[in-house]
Design a protein around this nucleic acid. Structure first.
Length: 594
RNA sequence: GGGGCUGUAGCUCAGCACGGUCAGAGCGCCUGCCUGUCACGCAGGAGGCCGCGGGUUCAAGUCCCGUCAGCCCCGCCA
């Protein structure tokens, strides 16, 4: 390294004209005119044009002639103002150029597999992942990661200022029942035993509350061995928080402060607080899902009474079987073919069918209402329908599903999203947070006929529902809350059980025996016995949050070295085979290590 | 475990439905020329197991079966 950098390119401007400076970086582009060579050199911070003139120094000019794209170089020269009319307004250093006097070539480069000076979003992701370091070096390739860095900094600054303490918890820990599949790490020292990588630091952060830290946070990696999606990676990052001597309101409040601070600092966006809240029941009833996208309307309406008054047998029999009838309004008309496709699509989701009624306000030539089923509805019902759905638009289509509540909500919830996308009803650049509260504590597993925790087994029941634990546990609501952004669950948490007797009772209801509870969670139960304070917290899927903030379609775009959908790292080739010696050492072949 | 889309030059893609001028384009790359370009330009050139394997056929990027890989989704994700 003969030529050391004197300036980052972003620091270079007309104030340095006439000065001798040295820049370091990579060749982005070259424009070779024979006697004069223009090079665009790029470092992390920007782009600068360098000129090598044959007349000035034939030797250096000849050396510069050997440069190609992505060679790593240092260039020393005199900064000068560009000749009049030769400025380049597209780059921040466009008024000036560096007249190259000395050049050190640190390394040559193969021709990159994709262009380094263009938007790479059209290049196949597999190739970009294989050459992730080149994608990142390319123009704009670091933006998401620099943004992510700023998010982390802003979160830490904010939480530090509010008295939170970041504590690191183990990655080699204990496998726990329920929840996602664990990643297991075989243990060399204890044949046949395994560590597990944490699905979250849940129990450790509760222990930290018992330990009296009172306010904890951690930006922490979590591991879940489940199938991948655009918003799911086997290892992902949580912002994990926990507080003592607090209630739900304290946590929701501090999270709203944190998120509005974050959006203001990093995106310049003012969020309105407090965020709206929906109960689980309301969310399901209005949007058909517990993670509603509030960027647009199209709420579901219950029309069970109207359907019951109609002569439409499908509706009436659904009601008789204990089902419900719900509908939503799309502000558009559809072709017969589209309606058939929608019906098919709804049936694939489990609906028996999809009823629709076309509405036309100023019906001079056409019927105001048209549909194969409209004959089952008399004038009176139709006008109640008009009122119910607030049919003020000229054209609309009403869609109905009549089925058991689960299916009705799921199908209409999906239909709502599908139609909103199709009709472009979702505003760009909108960020709509919503809290979902009052989740049920338990749900029933149909196959095994046992209860599961909707959140996790350490979630505190609502105090007013405690009595129902013995009589009707499925009716018990929990002190859990999710936070949803634009239809994506970005965080969730709860007030935890901090009393041993209640925790044991919940284990019992979940069908966890005393022995198993002792074996798996004995350390927690014991800790609760030593003056555990009331506490609760929340965890954010940080990758998802950043993905949404940047408007990316996949979490992989904001993770430096992500896995493919089949769980491979295309850069390193993991997972890979290992030597038989390693397997034997870990006692993974029983009997072979004797 | 299941459904769908994709795979042709270094990159992005066309060509597949109707098998036979079908090995093509743009960019990139290589060589040469060029003293004011900035996605420089001009002239010339190289580059292909049409993902892989099998089948049908006189003949297969093209049709069929299988398989691998990437992506999206369902299941799964307390």
């Amino acid at each position: 390294m003969r030529l050391k950098r004197t300036h980052f390119i972003e620091e270079i401007n007309s104030h340095l004209i006439g000065k001798e400076i040295t820049v370091c970086g990579w060749i982005l582009r070259r424009r070779d005119h024979g006697g004069v060579i223009f090079l665009d050199i790029r470092d992390r911070s920007g782009i600068l044009q360098v000129v090598f003139e044959e007349g000035l120094d034939p030797k250096i000019h000849a050396l510069a002639d050997s440069l190609k794209i992505e060679y790593a170089v240092s260039i020393k020269g005199i900064l000068r103002r560009r000749p009049p009319g030769m400025e380049n307004p597209k780059i921040s250093t466009g008024e000036v150029e560096l007249v190259g006097k000395d050049l050190e070539i640190h390394n040559a480069s193969q021709t990159p597999p994709f262009p380094m000076d263009e938007d790479l979003s059209e290049v196949s992701e597999a190739l970009r992942l294989r050459y992730r370091y080149l994608e990142m070096r390319a123009l704009g390739g670091q933006e998401a990661f620099i943004f992510r860095h700023r998010i982390n900094q802003t979160i830490r600054d904010f939480l530090n200022s509010r008295g939170f303490i970041e504590v690191e918890t183990p990655y080699l820990t204990k496998s726990t029942p329920e929840g996602a599949r664990d990643y297991l790490v075989p243990c060399r020292l204890y044949p046949g035993k395994f560590y597990a990588l944490p699905q979250s630091p849940q129990l450790f952060k509760q222990i930290l509350m018992v330990a009296g830290f009172e306010r904890y946070y951690q930006i922490v990696r979590c591991f879940r061995d489940e199938d991948l999606r655009a918003d799911r990676q086997p290892e992902f990052t949580q912002l994990d928080m926990e507080m003592s001597f607090i209630t739900e309101e304290d946590i929701l409040g501090i999270v709203e402060d944190l998120l509005s601070h974050l959006f203001k600092e990093t995106l310049g966006i003012e969020l309105k607080t407090p965020f709206p809240r929906l109960t689980y029941e309301q969310a399901l009833s209005l949007y058909g899902t517990d993670r509603p996208d509030l960027r647009f309307g199209m709420e579901l309406k219950d029309v069970s009474d109207l359907g019951g008054d109609s002569q439409f047998q499908v509706f009436r029999s659904a009601l008789e079987k204990g089902g419900i009838i719900k509908g939503l309004k799309a502000p558009a008309h559809f072709t017969r073919k589209e309606l058939e496709e929608l019906t098919q699509w709804a049936q694939n989701l489990g609906a028996k069918g999809l009823a629709w009624i076309k509405y036309q306000k100023d019906a001079l030539t056409e019927e105001k209402w048209s549909s194969p089923i409209v004959k089952f509805f008399d004038r009176n019902i139709l006008s109640r329908m008009e009122e119910h759905f607030e049919l003020t638009e000229d054209k609309a289509t009403l869609f109905f599903v009549a089925d058991e509540p689960n299916i009705t909500h799921r199908v209409l919830g999906e239909l709502r999203l599908y139609l909103a996308n199709k009709l472009s009803l979702i505003p760009k650049d909108a960020f709509k947070f919503v809290w979902i509260v009052d989740f049920p504590l338990f749900e029933r597993d149909e196959n095994e006929n046992r209860l599961y925790s909707v959140h996790h087994p350490f979630t505190h029941p609502k105090v007013e529902d405690l009595e129902l634990l013995d009589t009707d546990p499925l009716k018990v609501r929990s002190r859990a809350y999710d936070i949803v952004l634009n239809g994506v669950e970005v965080g969730g948490g709860s007030i935890r059980v901090h009393r041993r007797d209640l925790q044991e009772k919940i284990f019992h209801i979940l069908g966890i025996s005393k022995e198993e509870a002792e074996e798996k969670f004995g350390f927690l139960l014991q800790a609760l016995d030593f003056g555990a304070p009331p506490h609760g917290g929340i965890a954010f899927g940080l990758d998802r949050l950043i993905m949404l903030m940047l408007g990316k379609k996949s979490i992989r775009e904001v993770i430096a070295f992500p896995k493919t959908q089949r769980g491979q790292c295309l850069l390193t080739g993991a997972p890979s085979s290992v030597k038989i010696e390693q397997i034997l050492e870990l006692h993974l072949l029983p009997g072979w290590d004797k």
